[in-house]
Simulated scan of single mutants.
Amino acid sequence: MKATGTIEVKSWDENTWDGRSYKEVEGRKLTEAHVSFSYTGDISGVSQCRYLMYYSDDVAWTTALEEITADDGTLVLRHVGAYRTGVEGVIEIVDGTGKYAGAKGAATVVWAEDGSSTYTLEYEV
C-alpha cells in the first residue's frame, strides 16, 4: 500500500539532557526533542515523536520513535538520521493498530526550503 500527503511541524520542544534549552549550549551536546506533527492526505492525523540527538562540531545525529494517530488506527515509525547541510535519514514503519495492524514498510519525508513538506509511506499489513 502507498499513502501520500503533507506533514507540518506543530510543536518542537528541545532541551539538553540536563534540562537547558539546546540553544543555550554551544558546541557538542546531547538533546531530546518532543515533537508533534500534523499529517494530511491519505493518512490524516497527528503524531507524537521523541528525538534523541547528538550535536558534534559538524553534524547532528538523530534517532527517534514516532506514533501517528489517525481515525482508522496508529502507525509507529523509527527514524535514524543526521542533519548536515540538509536532512538525511531512513524512516522505517515498524508496527500499527486498526487498519494498519502489523504494518511494516518505509516512509520518506521531503522537507522544502520554504518549510513545507510531503510524505510517502509504503507498507504492507
Results as ranks from 00 to 15, higher is better:
I7N: 10
D13G: 08
V125L: 13
V94C: 10
N15R: 15
E66G: 03
Y39K: 04
D71R: 05
Y39W: 15
K2R: 12
M53K: 05
E124C: 02
T63C: 06
E92C: 02
D13E: 14
A101L: 13
T118W: 00
D95H: 03
D114E: 06
A103R: 03
S47F: 05
Y123W: 12
I93Q: 00
K10T: 11
E124Q: 11
T120F: 05
V94E: 06
G81D: 06
Q48E: 14
Y83M: 15
E67N: 13
E32L: 10
G27N: 01
I93P: 10
V90K: 12
C49Q: 10
T31C: 13
E26G: 15
V87I: 02
V25D: 01
V59K: 13
D72L: 05
D57N: 06
T118P: 00
T4R: 04
G105D: 01
N15P: 07
S44L: 12
R28Y: 00
A33T: 08
T63P: 00
K99R: 14
G96C: 07
K104C: 06
S116Q: 03
K99V: 05
E14Y: 04
W111Q: 08
E26L: 12
V59H: 03
S36F: 05
D71N: 11
T108G: 06
K29C: 08
I43T: 05
S21M: 14
G86W: 07
T63F: 09
S38H: 13
V94Q: 05
D13M: 12
C49K: 10
G105K: 08
D18R: 04
R28F: 01
G27H: 03
K23L: 15
D18T: 13
L77G: 04
T74L: 10
D114R: 04
V80D: 05
V90D: 08
V80N: 07
S38Y: 10
T120C: 04
T118D: 00
I91C: 04
R20L: 14
T63L: 13
I43N: 01
V109L: 08
E124N: 10
Y100E: 01
R78E: 15
V35M: 04
G105T: 01
D114N: 15
K99W: 03
T40C: 04
T118E: 00
S56A: 09
G73N: 07
M1S: 13
V125P: 03
L121G: 03
L75F: 06
T120L: 07
A60E: 13
T69N: 02
D72G: 09
T120G: 05
S38I: 14
G89Y: 08
A33I: 09
M53E: 09
E32A: 12
A112C: 05
K23Y: 09
T97C: 00
F37G: 00
G96A: 07
